[in-house]
């Protein structure tokens, strides 16, 4: 790949992530509405919401500091940067050398860290409550995430997302040992729900301050700051869904950067992510939000599943 090609691919991916992420959110909302026998808003509604928010002025709490106003930009930029390290429609991302899957997780963590700070910055008890809850959910998610990544990484012999995706894609639909893969998939799916603040861990549609986690942290934001935070949340969701689909079922992704396979890869990516979004919407409609201290049970299950994935990997592969 030449420099110009690489740059074009990176820019293209950035543009796609920015463009597709509100759609995923809209899709999930639509699915939920339909399952609740409502017509629901247009799938493209999130775009209009963002546009409206960008146009509006912002009310800023006078108790806040520069952390509060800087956080949306930091969050947005770090999430976008993390998205550029993950293969979407092309298995080998030009920037993949700059960071592996652990880096992706860490970049997202920076955003979470600043959001927790911003939640506390206004001095409102709601923000503090959100940050405090985010701290525990996020902490318990991390070990399950790391172990499931390990289990997946073992199959591909790497922690580089591009390498994992590329090697799995080359297998052409034959995963030699389904059990570890399936269990790691289940674990990472639970992790995704927890990380992106979805039911049954958090409810993105809630208007009750006492049950909020993510929404409570961003309660004080308005105008373009809120737009950036929401957009970043959508990108994070898209990023996690992309990781899930491309790590476990990368088929159809472009292995070579030629126009035909890129076009196919793009279509397949949108289809896979949409399918996962449907699933998330379905789960949000089927399950109730768990009490905060029941979330540990769920994340415990995720941890055990990823541990079992690891054990099974060695049971099946460990010996000659």
């Amino acid at each position: 790949m030449t420099m110009i090609q690489s740059a074009a691919l990176v820019l293209g991916q950035a543009f796609l992530i920015l463009a597709v992420s509100p759609f995923v959110v809209g899709l999930i909302r639509k699915v939920k509405a339909r399952l609740q026998c409502r017509r629901g808003a247009n799938v493209l509604q999130p775009y209009s919401d963002l546009a409206k928010l960008f146009k509006k002025g912002a009310v800023i709490s006078s108790t806040t500091s520069w952390i509060f106003t800087a956080t949306p930009y930091i969050l947005f930029a770090f999430t976008l940067a993390a998205s550029l390290l993950v293969p979407t429609f092309l298995s080998r991302v030009p920037l993949s050398f700059a960071g592996d899957v652990i880096t992706v997780v860490s970049l997202l963590t920076v955003g979470t860290f600043f959001l927790m700070l911003a939640g506390m910055d206004a001095g409102s008890p709601f923000g503090g409550m959100g940050s405090s809850r985010e701290a525990i959910v996020f902490s318990l998610t991390e070990p399950a995430m790391m172990l499931s990544i390990f289990a997946v990484g073992l199959t591909a012999g790497s922690t580089n997302v591009s390498t994992i995706v590329h090697n799995t894609a080359l297998l052409q639909g034959i995963v030699t040992d389904p059990p570890p893969h399936l269990m790691a998939l289940a674990a990472l799916f639970i992790v995704t729900l927890a990380e992106t603040g979805r039911v049954p861990v958090d409810n993105p549609a809630t208007h009750l301050e006492l049950t909020m986690i993510h929404e409570a942290m961003v309660l004080e934001y308005s105008g373009r700051y809120l737009a950036l935070v929401e957009w970043a949340a959508a990108m994070k969701l898209l990023l996690m869904l992309t990781l899930l689909s491309n790590i476990f079922a990368p088929w159809g992704i472009a292995i070579q950067p030629d126009p035909a396979s890129l076009a196919i890869g793009l279509g397949v990516w949108v289809a896979k992510v949409s399918a996962l979004a449907l699933l998330v919407g379905l789960i949000e409609s089927m399950f109730a939000k768990l009490r905060l201290f029941r979330v540990t049970d769920l994340l415990g299950v995720a941890f055990i599943l990823s541990l079992l994935a690891l054990v099974f990997f060695y049971i099946l592969r460990g010996r000659p």
Partner: peptide, 21 residues
């Protein structure tokens, strides 16, 4: 491999029982 998948499901259901309220 099919046997393995099945025995995996046996183990997973055991854990599900442990995690059940």
């Amino acid at each position: 491999q099919m046997v393995n998948v099945c025995s995996m499901m046996l183990l997973v259901t055991s854990f599900a029982i442990v995690a059940q309220r």
